[in-house]
Design a protein around this nucleic acid. Structure first.
Lengths: 153, 153
DNA sequence: GAAAACTAATCTGTCGAACAGACTATATGT
DNA sequence: ACATATAGTCTGTTCGACAGATTAGTTTTC
């Protein structure tokens, strides 16, 4: 059941977000990339790829496209000249804001069969579970989140 | 966050289940097919494909393989001779039982950062959300499930 | 302080899985 | 009876994922 639920939800989520992301290159993937860059600010291109579970060679051409569209920029990391820091342009931020709004609405619709209290609980548990299950992530982060969650509940 | 959580969890789930499904053809997909056939008994090949969100042309060769391995059989539906009812063989049931056990353990590990009470809640909410979001499914089913869930809580 | 070992990102080639579209056989509506 | 629709299969093409080599820069070690 778990696998089926996840598959169905992710598929539906993707379909709706695909639609909401029509302004962005590479659809859902593009949204995830831009969103991660803006909201999570991963330090490097490699970190970004790891967070999203995207192959580094794929990340290269995704970012090529985003740079070409003026949504993101690659800057050399002064501390390590092999690495690139990915930073959003103003245009990128503006576009993302619009898309984010549409995505939020799409997610609401997706979970519309759940009362809002249940929705909050589901989101919190999902994030917690995902953080705990994500490979390679710093365990400290997961623990900190867990503590925060317990406290607020 | 929702999209990211779902993506991460599904990816991790797939990796673990891929491992647990080493006896089956087509890995995770294979597990989902066999599991759906045995536990959900969808009436036809098309219904099975719809439930799992798999293209019908893909379903054809998945089932070819399963039939070749003696795990499933295609029988003509006496009521509609275009349709095939997919039924598991005894061997198929036995193999699935083993795989199911391994999958259950893998899922436990996947959610090991959640206390067991939270785990139950998460699974219930996920299933409810997925049932509500699944396209084309009979709305009655979703409503019935929803009622049952509220009652038991 | 040069060689060796490692890592970030890119480039190239290959392969497989997904999908569109045509086709067969059966069913249903007019 | 004829048109239209559906279940399943088959064929061909396309596109994205990944492996592997490459370039550039960093850290380690002796």
């Amino acid at each position: 059941m778990l696998g089926w639920s996840l598959t169905v939800l992710l598929r539906e989520w993707s379909a709706r977000v695909e639609d909401a992301s029509r302004d962005l290159p590479h659809g859902v993937r593009g949204y995830q990339v831009l969103s991660a860059v803006v909201h999570e600010t991963p330090p490097t291109q490699a970190a970004l790829a790891a967070r999203l579970g995207i192959d580094r060679t794929v990340m290269t051409y995704l970012l090529d496209k985003f740079e070409g569209c003026g949504l993101l920029e690659r800057r050399q990391d002064p501390a390590d000249r092999r690495a690139r820091r990915i930073v959003p342009t103003d245009h990128g931020r503006r576009v993302l804001a619009e898309v984010d709004a549409r995505v939020a609405q799409a997610e609401d619709e997706l979970l519309s069969t759940l009362p809002s209290e249940d929705r909050r609980v589901l989101l919190a548990l999902l994030e917690h579970a995902a953080s705990g299950a994500a490979p390679g992530e710093d365990r400290c982060a997961a623990v900190a989140r867990s503590a925060a969650l317990t406290q607020e509940a």
